[in-house]
Design a protein around this nucleic acid. Structure first.
Lengths: 231, 231
DNA sequence: TAGATTGTTAATCGATTAACAATC
DNA sequence: TAGATTGTTAATCGATTAACAATC
């Protein structure tokens, strides 16, 4: 026999929701909404429903409303959302505008592409230094945003890392862990790596990995799966 | 009052598990295990426990064993896994070795980096064509794997897409949807895009997006969150 | 046999979807 | 008021973690 107690009423907090309450999955979608709202702004559209905004963002309207509900209540029932207002509120949450400094280590083809990628500046990131171990590359100029940056030697890493908030690792896999260690030692707490290997970091350091090979492998898996089904 | 019936014994199937039964999250981790096993092979290590392999892959041992259980039963209780055997079985599942053909559209800095990325060939992908709309780029040679490929005009897209299983979109955002449509029309069912915008595709077409800006924004969000906590 | 480690089951956790009362 | 659409709750789904019986 079990006895069920009546639940106490859910605590109602009036203060702003803390960032840590927002689910990771929601955080990952905020930039999608932000971008969709941007495009509506450009078109001079003032109001949008969750239905339409969800469509533009590639999610369901239920999910969009749920996601927004973690941030607060920004719409008007029966009407929808003010595009400019919602855009600015989301911008606030994802921190667009308040620039963060980035150092890129490993300036091969990929590092080069990253350094000259316009999307970074647009989203509030400033590439402040490029580092490479190869002496034949050190000193070369690479176009970054408006200006250019000179590639600096590995020895400069601690110095520049101390000025940055985010480290990007675009080296071969073999060098990634050692570069990672140096970044962490210099106080970097956020790392984006393009090397396929798993990085070991102390607690409190956030690592995200982008692995093109892995993405393709997942597609390949699905491709074979479909073939198997149709065969 | 509720009455509980005894469960029938779980159905025991002898046939191989179908790929569609493997959870997406598991599929995404198989390449990690594969890579970790590869490195053990290189070191001449013959046997490994779920504990150690999990550590090398950056997951928990429970998760590793659970993941493997979807594929079958490959270890020996009290002993662990034979590295070479497990490696070959996972290779089979993720389809490493059976080459798939890739066409890359948009050969700017990023497309260039992708085309010359060794990791692709290593994982069983063959880049068979490079396409760009810019006449000043068409005809240029780009090193791909062992050899080189000439950049071909957009007009060639339908022709080459018919020979490929995977399309990679590395164009600016504005061109992505139109390129995507042409790829799909040519019969491509698997697309990897680097453009931040959401792509609309018919059912049955799988799209994966790699968005460096988004990854950085998520890191930035966490960075600000930590600052807010410590402030 | 005793110790080790798998494969699997059950419990937990988190994210998505569906539905609808609130309200413009 | 009637129609529309949000914000929220409850139900569902899927993935992770913990624990342990099976077994080498």
């Amino acid at each position: 026999m079990s006895v069920s107690f009546p639940r106490p009423p859910a605590a109602r907090s009036t203060r702003l929701r803390r960032a840590s309450d927002v689910p990771a999955a929601t955080v990952g979608r905020l930039p999608l909404y932000h971008r969709a709202l941007e495009s509506l702004l450009d078109q001079g559209i003032h109001t949008v429903s969750s239905q339409r905004l969800a469509e533009l963002s590639g999610v369901t309207s239920a999910q969009l409303r749920k996601d927004l509900s973690f941030l607060g209540s920004f719409g008007t029932r029966g009407v929808g959302y003010q595009v400019a207002y919602l855009h600015s509120r989301i911008a606030e949450w994802i921190g667009a505008g308040s620039d963060l400094d980035v150092v890129i280590v490993g300036i091969g083809n990929l590092g080069h592409a990253l350094a000259s990628y316009r999307g970074l500046a647009e989203r509030g990131f400033r590439v402040i230094a490029l580092i490479d171990i190869d002496p034949s590359r050190v000193g070369l100029s690479v176009g970054v945003g408006e200006g250019t940056l000179r590639i600096r030697p590995l020895a400069d890493l601690p110095e520049v890392a101390r000025l940055a908030q985010i480290g990007v690792i675009a080296t071969p896999d073999a060098a990634a862990q050692s570069v990672c260690d140096r970044l962490v030692e210099a106080g970097i707490r956020n790392i984006l790596t393009f090397a396929p290997g798993v990085l070991t970091v102390p607690g409190g350091v956030e690592v995200r990995r982008v692995d093109v090979g892995l993405e393709l492998q997942i597609l390949a898996f699905r491709e074979r799966q479909q073939r198997a089904v149709s065969a």
